[in-house]
Structures are given as structure tokens and as C-alpha cells.
């Protein structure tokens, strides 16, 4: 009976003035930040994976691939940034799948809010992850002797490019998160798609030693185009064409998958 009586004393509250779409999106962004606080394991993953990849490739394979570890680092570092950003998008998709499984999105959908606000929140989480990775990797690189020849401006441009890549790739996992009910399946499905894309590219090695048919694939692989542009931006000598080619995939993915996301979301 205590619940009943205390509930009857609960103040009746009327609806406050409707918040803006931006306000809704920022609340979901705040949620993404809280996730970092409450799920530190995720942060560990986020920090350790790129560090391990950088060290492994530089010191274990670097000498064999490029003559010396330091020379290889100069080649490899922009590539590992692209790889990390592409892989990092998996967290959003898994989070989305978890939220749907738990019925959390049903609550969001029954609220009078901007329909796309929850996705804006996911994007905030994504961008934070990309920024963390994009800070750690060049820092390790600098310690190991990497020098961005294009200077600070080049690095800033590279950050902007990475954010655009992350934004575009993010939709892939968001769509998978909407379609697949179990978070681990989202991860497996995503990586099945991303692994060949990342390894059959120019991230790790110069494709000139690959068989001709593979070279043809690597050349048009969007991940190669992104890596080439990023190398140019950080190392100097990027052409406008490089940058535009690198942006084709993110722009196309957004154009196709953003409306698809909305459709899938509203249909459920």
C-alpha cells in the first residue's frame, strides 16, 4: 500500500515546451558520453587495438616490408588511421542492436522527439571514438619517429577527412544494427564485410607485388582511395582529385543508407 499512497502524492506534471531537434540530439550525445564513463572496457579496446596494430606492423613486419621499421611507419601510419576509423564504427551498430533487443528504442519512438535524434547520438559517440583513436595513433607515431611532412595543417585536414570517413562508414553498421537482432552477429557480419575491404587495400603494403587481378581491385577499393588521400594530406602532395575520390564512398554511403536507416527505423 505504501507504493500506492506515495504514488498518489506524486506531483502531476504537464508537458514542458517542446524541445528543439538539436536539444534532442544533444541529449543522445550526452548518453554516448555516459557510456564511455560506465563502460570503460570499450575505451580499453578502443585504445589498445590501434596501439597493438601500430607496434606489430612497424616492428614485426616493417623491416621486411619497407627496409626499416621507421620507413615503414612513415608509409603505414595514415593507413592504420583509416583502418581504425573504419573498424570503430562497429560499436554504434552493436549498441543499436542492443538497444533494439532491450526495447529501449520502443520507448524513444513513443516519445514526442525528433525521429533521427537517437542516431545523431550514435554519431556523437562515433566521432568521439574517432577523435580518441586519431589522437592516440599519431602520438604513438611521433614517439616512434613518424613525421607528418605536411605539418599541422595537414594533420588537421587529415582529422577532418577521417571524421567524414567515419560518418559514412557509420551508416553501414547502423543499418546492420537495425537489421540484426544480436549485437555479436552485427560485429561478425560487419567484419566479414570489412576485413577483405581493409586487407585488399594499400593500407599495409604497396600493391605492386600483388597479382594483376587483385591490383585492379585494390585500385578501386574505396579504402585504398581514402588511404591515398590521407597519406597525401599528412605527408604532403595530396591533390584535389585524391580527396574527392576518397570522399565518394562516404558520400554515397550516406546518400543511400541514411534514408534507408530512417525507413527501417520507422517501419519497425
Amino acid at each position: 500500500m505504501t507504493e500506492a499512497t506515495s504514488l498518489m502524492r506524486l506531483r502531476r506534471v504537464a508537458r514542458p515546451p517542446a524541445p528543439s531537434a538539436l536539444s534532442n540530439a544533444l541529449v543522445f550525445g550526452w548518453r554516448a558520453v555516459l557510456k564511455f564513463k560506465h563502460v570503460p572496457e570499450q575505451l580499453f579496446d578502443l585504445v589498445m587495438t590501434p596501439i597493438m596494430f601500430t607496434l606489430l606492423f612497424t616492428f614485426v613486419f616493417g623491416g621486411a616490408l619497407a627496409g626499416s621499421p621507421s620507413e615503414y611507419l612513415q608509409f603505414f601510419l595514415p593507413g592504420i588511421l583509416v583502418q581504425t576509423v573504419v573498424f570503430n564504427s562497429v560499436y554504434s551498430g552493436m549498441g543499436l542492436s542492443t538497444d533494439f533487443g532491450k526495447g529501449l528504442f520502443d520507448r524513444f519512438r513513443s516519445l514526442p522527439i525528433w525521429s533521427l535524434a537517437p542516431f545523431a547520438g550514435l554519431m556523437v559517440g562515433d566521432i568521439l571514438r574517432h577523435l580518441i583513436a586519431a589522437t592516440i595513433i599519431p602520438t604513438i607515431g611521433l614517439i616512434l619517429g613518424y613525421r607528418p611532412e605536411a605539418g599541422v595543417l595537414g594533420v588537421v585536414a587529415a582529422f577532418a577527412m577521417l571524421t567524414a570517413i567515419g560518418f559514412g562508414m557509420g551508416w553501414v553498421f547502423i543499418v546492420l544494427g537495425l537489421l540484426i537482432r544480436t549485437p555479436t552477429t552485427v560485429m561478425t557480419a560487419g567484419f566479414t564485410f570489412l576485413f577483405p575491404l581493409v586487407f585488399a587495400s594499400n593500407i599495409m603494403v604497396d600493391p605492386s607485388t600483388m597479382p594483376g587481378w587483385l591490383q585492379a581491385i585494390v585500385e578501386i577499393n574505396p579504402v585504398s582511395l581514402m588511404t591515398t588521400a590521407l597519406r597525401g594530406l599528412m605527408g604532403g602532395g595530396a591533390s584535389a582529385a585524391d580527396v574527392l575520390l576518397a570522399l565518394i564512398a562516404p558520400v554515397a554511403l550516406t546518400a543511400v543508407l541514411a534514408p534507408m536507416t530512417l525507413w527501417l527505423y520507422l517501419r519497425r
Binding site: P16, A18, V27, L34
Partner: peptide, 16 residues
């Protein structure tokens, strides 16, 4: 992953 209070604050803010 969030606390009980954070869950309610989140929804309160979404309401405006």
C-alpha cells in the same frame, strides 16, 4: 549501462 537516475534524467531532458 546507465544508473537509474541517469535513465530518468535522460528521458526528462528528451521531454524538454
Amino acid at each position: 549501462d546507465l544508473t537509474g537516475r541517469e535513465n530518468l534524467v535522460l528521458l526528462s531532458r528528451l521531454w524538454g
